[in-house]
Design a protein around this nucleic acid. Structure first.
Lengths: 145, 145
DNA sequence: TCTTGACCTCAAGTTCACTTGAACTGGCAG
DNA sequence: CTGCCAGTTCAAGTGAACTTGAGGTCAAGA
């Protein structure tokens, strides 16, 4: 079993065929030939997809991820970039921690209205001051048509 | 100084005028009249904007935030929803923590290639398995034309 | 009074990461 | 041989949250 077709890649990776085609178009992955019309991929594409998932999960855009692969296809990951992104994640995490605590408090706060709760108002100030970025909504269960 | 105009709101809140108009169109805020063409806002709009910033920072969409205001305009925040969102944030935070640790490791990993580093490969598996959502890119410094 | 500049409206454009639709192709089961 | 069906292409659509552009208006300063 040298090459696997797009359906198998989709199955094994959990990435939709349409997404795989999209990634190929973007140059993030490459198919290795065809059986009829069907793309054939080297099983190593699975590592590649994992790498892409990692990049995405870490906040890189697809374009940035694309730039992380040398022209020859081998990942050429800049360690400094990783450290930078790790620091960025760290700040994000701190921010979200504050948010979570605030929400948690607001959820049980006995003040008649949130606007009358000092903790809530403090949270508000943090949110307003931070010019913070919303974490993208987690879209669960995007399978089936 | 009863009402403030859109420029002042923008200045005080850090939210662009175009965004304020957009929010008004969406029903998230309301202007209270006009001086000529210029919208006038009640200073309370600043609290409202802080509330919106908080919601966004916590991962709510603008539509969801809109639904948090009763028709009369007073915030009617569902405490259960807050708790749910807090839990969601918690999961996100855990995920990002793992990512950050992984990146941090990859940044200093002595393996000749990341693909040969067991820790990196483990991180890859986590990322691939998680079907995780990328945290939106933090766009810094979007001011000036 | 006239000019200016900030604001106005409305429609369309932007970015990101995909998904969907229409029309078509071709390997394989029957 | 014939259909089926899962694949293919290409263009266009989606959704979230805004931003931008064109063309218009008006309060205030010179």
């Amino acid at each position: 079993m040298r090459d696997i077709d797009i359906a198998e890649v989709a199955e094994l990776s959990g990435v939709r065929a349409s997404t795989l085609r999209f990634y190929e178009e973007k140059g993030l992955i490459a198919s290795h030939g065809r059986r009829g019309l069907r793309r054939l991929f080297d099983p190593a594409v699975l590592d590649r997809l994992a790498l892409i998932a990692l990049g995405r999960a870490s906040g890189f855009t697809l374009d940035e991820i694309g730039r992380m692969f040398a022209p020859d296809g081998r990942p050429r990951i800049d360690r400094k970039m990783l450290a930078t992104k790790a620091d960025e994640l760290d700040r994000t995490i701190r921010r979200l921690n504050a948010m979570r605590d605030g929400l948690r408090h607001a959820a049980v706060c006995p003040a008649p209205s949130h606007m009358e709760c000092p903790t809530f108002r403090r949270l508000l100030r943090v949110a307003a001051a931070g010019k913070m970025e919303a974490p993208k909504k987690t879209k669960k269960s995007r399978r089936k048509s």
